[in-house]
Design a protein around this nucleic acid. Structure first.
Length: 427
RNA sequence: GGCCUCAUCGUCUAACGGUCAGGACACAAGCUUCUCAAGCUUGGAAUCGGAGUUCGAUUCUCCGUGAGGUCACCA
């Protein structure tokens, strides 16, 4: 197509952003970036009754988190009342609008059936039933959405209008307005709905849609979140699923946007997030985990143990909350029955624990590492029927848990003295 | 209800009218392990139904069915 691509994201400031609206923003941003175009943020604040204080800032912050930086904006419609007035006057003078009380109503020139082309849905049609003379300026002087968004899209040179499927049926209104204004409509890029987790309904706040910033606070990576969102209603046509931001810009294409609604899946999001986490430099992993650990657990050695078990930073708190790391903080309570491995008699368990303690005492304090502990214990278990009858009681004595990371690394973290003390306490 | 849109594994999805209907998440089993996690391997799992067009329909057409959207001085 000729000319520069201009897209916009035009939310109304009526609350927080959820996944559905962000996906629209993402696609508009991707398309603009892919084409070296312009991405505009426009706040459609023309309903002062429904407006929620702070939500415009909240929207900007959400976009900032995801790195969907607008090239222009935020532009507030409430500050452009003169523009709408000018257009409205023009329509009125041309006989395309007439007063209705304090309000101004658009006069539908011809009630007819409209056929138009959508970049995603193909040829669409909607009938005269959608065409009643509609309000363009409200009695309070503010324009309606129907009018304001079209004026702005014209004024701002928007080339691709991206929005949800719910706007298909009102498109005849827009087309008749474009006609009356003597303007060629932009490309319509209608996006499939995002469905709530419960079932088949459009995602909404009532349906349990989460505030986007909650995802940030749970410790998802912005690039992973974008990756996940992009794949919800679009696919690259290849089997690649993990995309960097740059790769996404390259690969994204309107022609591969899906028509049917997509249900959001936390599992897939977590998986994608983990895949992105694995690519992070170790310093970043370290910082993100340490910052979520209490002072007593500021230990580098815990990082790989935790990293392996989380799919987002916030899961660290989950592990803490579930007590999975308590044994690093204090000596566990040892239940004698749980010390046993399968049917191994308690005398054998006791003997094995003693052997373990003896062996570990022979390791020097500054060589008390995962490897040396493992070697020492391996020598003992080589003479046993199963490694379990040694390793299970050792692990349980150290942690008080029936499942945990391996006892070697735990020993290293606890240190020689504490490790041996716990073994002896269990004996 | 009128009008509009959509329809492939549980979920996200792939397949110029010709594929054993592919991949991923999730799930299950096995391997590895003392357990957990991770990793590797394997497996089950789908074209909504009925006509038609065609040598051949997931794919094109029609009719059903189902689901969703929309019918404001809300966006």
């Amino acid at each position: 197509m000729a000319g520069k691509v201009v897209t916009r994201f035009a939310p109304s400031p009526t609350g927080f952003m959820h996944v559905g609206s962000v996906r629209t923003a993402l696609y508009a941003w991707l398309w603009a970036k892919k084409n070296n175009g312009t991405f505009i943020l426009r706040i459609e604040d023309t309903d002062k009754d429904r407006e929620v204080e702070g939500s415009a800032e909240h929207i900007s912050e959400s976009l900032r988190w995801l790195g969907l930086t607008p090239d222009q904006g935020p532009i507030f419609q409430s500050k452009r009342l003169d523009v709408y007035k000018k257009y409205a006057d023009g329509l009125r003078e041309a006989g395309h609008a007439y007063p209705d009380g304090e309000a101004l109503r658009f006069k539908i020139p011809v009630k007819k059936r409209y056929h138009w082309h959508d970049q995603v849905y193909g040829d669409l049609t909607a009938g005269e039933e959608a065409l009643e003379d509609f309000i363009i300026l409200k009695s309070d002087g503010y324009p309606t959405y129907n009018f304001a968004h079209i004026v702005d899209d014209i004024e701002m040179g928007v080339t691709h209008v991206m929005r949800g499927e719910e706007f298909i049926s009102s498109t005849p209104k827009y087309l008749s307005l474009y006609e009356a204004l003597g303007t060629t409509p932009p490309f319509f890029v209608t996006l499939p709905l995002i469905l709530g987790p419960s079932g088949q309904k459009k995602l909404s706040k009532r349906d349990g849609a989460k505030d986007l910033l909650d995802y940030r606070d749970e410790g998802y990576l912005p690039d992973a979140f974008i990756n996940f969102l992009a794949l919800l209603g679009w696919n690259p046509g290849t089997e690649q699923e993990i995309f960097s931001r740059e790769e996404l810009k390259q690969a994204f294409d309107i022609s591969r946007i899906q028509k049917s609604g997509a249900q959001i899946s936390q599992e897939k999001l977590d998986w994608i997030n983990k895949e992105h986490m694995k690519k992070l430099p170790s310093g970043e992993v370290r910082d993100n985990i340490l910052i979520r650990l209490p002072p007593e657990l500021q230990n580098e050695k815990l990082i790989p143990i935790i990293f392996e078990r989380i799919s987002k930073w916030g899961d660290t708190a989950g592990m803490l909350g579930a007590g999975e790391l308590d044994f690093f903080l204090r000596r566990p309570e040892v239940d004698k029955k749980k010390l046993a491995y399968k049917n191994t008699p308690s005398e054998r368990i006791e003997k094995n624990l003693k052997l373990a303690a003896e062996a570990l005492k022979n390791i020097s304090e500054n060589n008390f590492t995962r490897d040396s502990v493992k070697n020492a214990l391996d020598l003992i278990s080589a003479n046993l029927e199963t490694r379990g009858e040694l390793l299970h009681p050792v692990r349980y004595a150290l942690t008080g848990r029936s499942s945990s990371p391996d006892p070697f690394i735990i020993s290293e973290v606890l240190g020689k003295n504490e490790t041996i003390a716990r073994l002896e306490s269990a004996i």
